[in-house]
Amino acid sequence: MTEPTRDERVELALDLLAHLEADELSLAEVVDRIETVTTDPTLTRDILDTAELRGIIERDGGRVRHNRGGTFVRFESQVVQREGDFDCRRCGASISTGHFVTFESGELGPFGSSCIRKVLGRE
């Protein structure tokens, strides 16, 4: 499997931000989600700037408001579970069941059962 390009990572992160369920998060919480796609600080900043330019989010100091587009991740159709030996992209734990989120721009994962809920804002 090839590593996603910079543009592909940006689009994947934008898809993730567009599907967050929380109306407002701290900047740290948003960066935590972006870090499931990239830990490059320059790319993270570019993702935040692009998300704001596209109207996905609004930043106000240390808070980020999500501009609701009516899209949430549907666990039944957009989250796929696979068995195998994985490391969670959020916490790094070894997991035997990986949860992968399928977006138009690509797939994000694997995540453990609790991390998938945190990444998507269900907890």
Rank of each mutant, 00 (worst) to 15 (best):
I95R: 03
S105C: 11
T102W: 00
F75S: 07
E29Y: 05
L12H: 06
D49A: 11
V119R: 01
E83V: 14
P41N: 10
S113E: 15
K118H: 13
E52A: 00
I34S: 02
D85R: 13
T97K: 13
D46P: 00
T71K: 14
V30L: 11
H99T: 01
V79E: 01
T97L: 12
R68E: 03
P41S: 11
H99R: 07
H66D: 01
E21A: 04
C115G: 02
G109A: 05
T5L: 15
R90I: 02
R59C: 06
V119M: 03
T44V: 15
E52Q: 01
N67W: 01
R90N: 10
E58I: 09
C88A: 10
L48A: 07
V37K: 05
S26M: 13
I34V: 12
T42S: 13
D85Q: 14
T36S: 04
R74L: 03
T44D: 02
I116E: 00
R82F: 00
E107H: 01
T2Q: 11
T42I: 12
F72N: 07
E104H: 08
G62M: 15
L14I: 13
I57C: 07
Q81K: 15
D15T: 08
E58K: 13
I116N: 02
E29A: 14
L20C: 06
R117I: 00
H99P: 08
F75M: 12
E3Q: 07
N67F: 11
L12D: 02
G69A: 14
D23A: 08
T39C: 01
G109V: 06
I95Y: 03
T39W: 07
G84N: 09
G121V: 10
R45H: 06
S114Q: 13
C91H: 07
L14S: 10
Q78V: 00
S113A: 14
I57H: 12
R33P: 03
M1A: 13
V37T: 12
G92L: 06
H66C: 03
I116A: 04
D40F: 04
D23L: 08
L14V: 12
D85N: 14
E123K: 15
A28W: 02
D49R: 02
A51C: 10
G121I: 05
R6L: 11
T38W: 11
G92E: 06
E3H: 05
E24R: 15
R65M: 03
H99S: 09
V80H: 03
Q78F: 00
L43S: 10
R89W: 01
V80R: 05
V73E: 08
S114D: 13
S94W: 04
L43H: 10
V30F: 09
D15H: 07
F103R: 05
G112D: 10
R74F: 03
G109E: 03
G92A: 10
T5R: 12
S96V: 11
R33W: 06
P41M: 03
G112T: 09
D15R: 02
E21G: 10
H19R: 09
V119A: 04
A93G: 09
V80F: 05
E3K: 11
F75V: 11
E107S: 05
V37F: 10
I56P: 04
G69E: 14
R89S: 02
R63Q: 15
S94V: 07
H19G: 07
F86G: 06
D85I: 12
G70F: 09
T39I: 04
D46R: 12
L16D: 08
G106R: 09
D32E: 15
V10A: 01
I56C: 03
